[in-house]
Computed example of a mutant assay.
Amino acid sequence: MYYEWTWISAKTGYGKYDEGMALLSKKPIARVQQFLTSKTDDYENWKTRRILGIQPEGSSDWFFTVHMGWWNDEEEPFVDQWKCIQETLKDSKYREGTIWLMGDFNSQDDVRGEGYDLVLKSGWKDTYLLAEEKDDGITVAEEIDGWREADGRSKAAKNEKRLDYIFCNTQEEVRTSNVICNGKNAPVVSDHYGVMITV
């Protein structure tokens, strides 16, 4: 199979990895956008956050890959990054079709009054909730970096959780939502599992 793809570098991870964002598309990519969502724009600072988006040829939809900070981070809180995304995506060039936000939101769906609730209150739809057929949705099965001492909630850090989502800004008909690369549905390739939907 052949894909078109685009990639941007965002930060240095663990002092040695060139961490970035990538998107692959079966359709030719017509337009690409990327923007900073964190206050810091330092390649050496692991809290630097960017998002990357594509519009495939012949489509009015935009697809963005997202990596958010934590809710209670004093330097780079989730809420500030979310405001940046909301403001940027108000631009009319993104509003012709559906906007899809996909990735690691670092927010548990079962914790009230934080990132997940903020996204839903902002009018976005969780495709997992829209799906006619779905599995358990768990995208992190064990203790991982960043969640070992997350907000002092050591119990929450060790529990299975849903941190990775596909959100859309319109009411879509989602047939299936499945977690992939979790050892049950394809081999594990990361400490976060993938999410795949059929629309």
Rank of each mutant, 00 (worst) to 15 (best):
D109R: 13
Q34W: 11
A30R: 06
D109P: 09
Y2W: 12
Y2P: 10
Y2K: 14
R153M: 04
P28I: 10
T170C: 07
H192R: 05
A30F: 04
Q171F: 04
Y193I: 04
W124K: 01
E114L: 15
E142K: 01
W70C: 00
S154M: 02
E160D: 13
K184P: 08
V174W: 02
E143Y: 06
F167N: 00
Y17R: 11
N169S: 02
M196E: 14
K125E: 00
K26W: 07
D41L: 10
W5Q: 14
T48G: 02
Y3N: 14
D117Q: 12
M21A: 08
Y165W: 04
V199W: 06
N169Q: 02
Q81I: 14
D135V: 13
G97C: 01
M102H: 01
F35T: 13
E87H: 07
E172N: 04
S9Y: 11
G113F: 03
E74S: 11
L101R: 00
N159T: 10
W46C: 01
S38V: 15
V195M: 05
S25Y: 08
I51C: 09
T198P: 01
H192P: 03
Y128M: 08
S190N: 05
V111G: 12
E76H: 08
K16C: 02
W82F: 12
E76R: 05
F63K: 03
K83R: 13
G152R: 01
W46D: 04
L101W: 01
L24M: 10
D104A: 11
T170D: 06
D80E: 14
I99G: 00
S122K: 13
G115M: 14
V66N: 02
L163D: 02
K83Q: 07
Y14R: 11
T12D: 09
D41M: 10
W147T: 01
K158R: 07
D91S: 13
K158E: 08
C181A: 15
W5R: 10
L118R: 11
D109Q: 14
T88W: 10
D164H: 07
D18W: 05
G194E: 09
Q33K: 11
G103H: 03
E133Y: 14
E57F: 09
Y193L: 07
M196V: 11
A157H: 01
R162A: 06
G146L: 08
A157C: 04
I138P: 08
Y165D: 00
L52H: 04
K125F: 03
N169T: 00
F64P: 01
A131S: 12
I29S: 02
S177M: 09
S154T: 02
W71I: 07
N45R: 09
K47C: 07
R95F: 00
W46F: 09
Q34P: 05
E114V: 14
K184G: 14
K39T: 14
K93H: 11
R175D: 10
N72W: 10
G137D: 05
D151A: 04
Y2G: 15
G113V: 00
S60K: 11
A10P: 08
W46Q: 03
I144W: 03
A30N: 07
L120S: 01
E142Y: 00
L118M: 13
